[in-house]
Nucleic acid binder design. Structure first.
Length: 640
RNA sequence: GCCGGCGUAGCUCAGGGGCAGAGCAACUGAUUCGUAAUCAGUAGGUCGGGGGUUCAAUUCCCCCCGCCGGCUCCA
């Protein structure tokens, strides 16, 4: 007899050989209904597997709606998809088919790429397989036998995978006539996969390397219930609705032009207004925080990048040099060497440090055409960059300050949730170990001081120093990589940056690179999606639009508009000969925060009748009262 | 860069080897109107660009450019 302990503390005893199915049934048949697998002493197992071995085991049901359960469900769905594909198309070789973040995929080596119609056919066949409710069964095989098995089926990718598995035996899973190499576990039968959908397909290289053959990847997703699946698909729709590329066009914020070139952004007047407000706020806050704002050229001699090391390390992202009177110049991919030159323009004392140079610096980097994406990945963009030069002993204090400042700026735009990562020393690094240890401790100390949660990415730091990355979470839960704070031991060395220390000796400062928004393009794209284009009053490009009811109201409306503008409010006047409902609809579609209706009543009483973007109408009020009302929101950081 | 899809009026999209289409927007006129679309009329096209097949190409084929979904990359 084996003693079984359940998570709720209940114990029971079962014979060796009892399946977990039966074990759970005896415990709680309700939970069994929702379970796809079990965790036995922390290890995931099939429900069909049997108790064995130890005298006491802890058994925990894994339900389909849990993180691990979903993963199992999706992984099983990928097997069902593979079965469907194999049964529909001859001569298909299987590569890999894992569960991923929001679903699963399977890579196939096919003669012909799949078409959208194939996707439908595959999904239909999958439904048949689910309906047939085939059992998932598993076998352990010695590697040699497994290789022979898959070689017999012509599955050369599987052979390759098996030969790289260190264990002496591997497991295979079968459902109906389909066999696949798999670690498992799986749901007990295909009928468990009640809610799934194929979501797309794409080419994907075998093992992710461009040197290898391109395979056909089919993406899908699966959930515990139809409701959860629908919710997920609705979320995708919602994301589509918020897409900054779509809203950018609809709201006339920005565009790109084929004549100009890919990845080069035109900021239209309304988008430019938002950008200007972001920039003004950014500059003011930096000055308050004791940064010096600087400006630097867009091109420079290539030698600068040879010294910095970028010419050797990142050549493929740099634009080709241009000849200027026999000298080679390139358009700048980064701002740091310029800031270093400003630093080096005279002798610096330890008394001058820290020195903080900040710049909204526009840089150009070559990105492969396939990598470009709206405002999020472009070839020309403006970094909200800063470089801080300090003595090693100032590092921790400085990082604390930068971190606090970063969070303050992000919160001012309405971002309050973050995923924070600390990346530590990689295998290949420059600088001495002592500095690394110190810098990592400093970054850690600064993170601890914020009280925010963070995770450590060991070995993921850049070769020149450890870093903190902050991803902001938007309203629908997506993460956006924006802020980065990087310690750099390398550039001060390469450019021979120095200061005079307390003893008059030449010392090497440490540098921090940091960007809060990353780039204005990316941050703006993120803001558009976060707010679905309905920007808070303080950075809405148009804050109030005045809508006249008839031509009789035009003169008064003009004075209202003029007055608002004098008060610094971005107001527009719509005196077109259209019905009020039409004007409201347009203002609403433009997502303007306030619509001021002016008809005969308002003219008579010297009032305005405000209507909010959400549809709420406020009682008619004197203009001065409305100005007070909107001014209360017209300040950086106020998010109405 | 690679795989697949797409590119038709300012926008959203339909069409398809033989006259280039709709809705919205624009323009003109009428209407002077109270909280999400007033009515009528007019104009608008190198069907992304180049080449080929054909009596005839926007449609079929090839090349290029751009966009979209991925792969890859992201200092």
């Amino acid at each position: 007899m084996i003693k079984v302990i359940f998570p709720d503390g209940v114990e029971s005893s079962c014979n060796e050989g009892t399946t977990f199915f039966e074990v759970l049934k005896g415990h709680d048949s309700e939970i069994l209904k929702n379970s796809v697998a079990v965790k036995v002493d922390g290890e995931l197992k099939d429900l069909r597997a049997a108790l064995k071995g130890d005298s006491t085991v802890r058994v925990e049901p894994v339900t389909a709606d849990s993180k691990e359960g979903l993963e199992i469900l999706r992984h099983s769905a990928s097997h069902v998809m593979a079965q469907a594909v194999k049964s529909l198309y001859g001569n298909v070789k299987l590569a890999i088919g894992p569960a991923i973040e929001d679903g699963f995929y399977y890579d196939f080596d096919t003669e012909k790429p799949f078409t959208p119609e194939d996707l439908e056919k595959i999904e239909a066949r999958m439904k048949e397989i689910v309906k047939a409710d085939y059992r998932f069964t598993s076998d352990a095989l010695p590697k040699k036998d497994a290789i022979a098995l898959f070689a017999g089926m012509g599955e050369r990718y599987k052979e390759e995978i098996i030969s790289e598995i260190p264990d002496p035996t591997v497991s295979v899973y079968r459902q109906s006539d389909f066999t696949d190499l798999c670690r498992g576990p799986h749901v007990p039968s295909t009928g468990y996969i009640k809610a799934f959908k194929l979501t797309g397909m794409a080419g994907a290289y075998w093992r992710g390397s461009e040197k290898n053959k391109m395979l056909q990847r089919v993406y899908g997703t699966a959930f515990a219930t139809k409701e959860a699946l629908k919710e997920h698909l609705d979320r995708l729709e919602e994301a589509k609705r918020r897409d900054h590329r779509k809203l950018g066009k609809e709201l006339d914020l920005f565009s790109t032009s084929e004549e100009i070139g890919s990845g080069l952004v035109l900021w239209h007047p309304l988008g430019s207004t938002v950008r200007r407000l972001i920039e003004d706020f950014w500059k003011n806050e930096h000055v308050k925080d004791d940064y010096s704002i600087v400006y630097t050229p867009h091109v420079a001699q290539v030698g600068l990048w040879k010294t910095s090391g970028h010419w050797d390390f990142y050549r493929e992202n740099l634009y080709s040099p241009m000849d200027v009177e026999g000298q080679e110049y390139i358009v700048k991919p980064m701002n740091c060497p310029f800031h270093i030159q400003i630093y080096k323009s005279r002798l610096r004392s330890y008394r001058d440090l820290p020195i903080r140079y900040a710049e909204l610096g526009t840089v150009y980097r070559y990105e492969r055409s396939g990598a470009l994406h709206g405002l999020l990945r472009v070839r020309g963009f403006t970094q909200d960059d800063a470089h801080i030069f300090m003595t090693p002993s100032q590092l921790e204090e400085e990082i604390k300050g930068v971190l606090k400042f970063t969070l303050y700026i992000l919160k001012s735009f309405g971002f309050n949730e973050f995923d924070i990562f600390l990346s530590t020393r990689p295998e290949k690094y420059v600088g001495d170990l002592e500095n690394w240890t110190r810098a990592e401790a400093a970054l850690k100390g600064a993170l601890e001081s914020t009280g925010l949660k963070y995770s450590i990415d060991p070995g993921e730091g850049v070769f020149y120093g450890p870093k903190i990355d902050i991803k902001i979470k938007d309203v629908i839960g997506r993460s956006w990589q924006c802020s980065t704070i990087q310690v750099d031991f390398n550039l001060p060395e390469r450019f021979d940056v120095t200061y005079r220390d307390e003893n008059g000796a030449e010392s090497r400062p440490i540098m921090i690179h940091r960007a809060l928004m990353g780039s204005l393009e990316r941050f703006f794209g993120c803001l558009v999606e976060h707010y679905a284009g309905a920007f808070p009053t303080w950075f809405a490009p148009v804050q109030a639009v005045i809508l006249t009811v008839t031509d009789r109201n035009n003169d008064y409306a003009e004075t209202v508009c003029k007055r608002l503008r004098e008060e610094g409010i971005r107001a527009e006047l719509d005196k077109r000969n259209e019905k009020l409902g039409f004007k409201i609809r347009e203002a609403q579609l433009k997502k303007i925060p306030y619509q001021l209706v002016i008809g005969d009543n308002e003219v008579k009483d010297g009032m305005v009748a405000p209507r909010k973007r959400g549809g709420e109408t406020l009682p008619a009020m004197p203009l001065d009262e409305f100005i007070r009302h909107i001014q209360a929101e017209n300040r950086p950081g106020v998010l109405k």
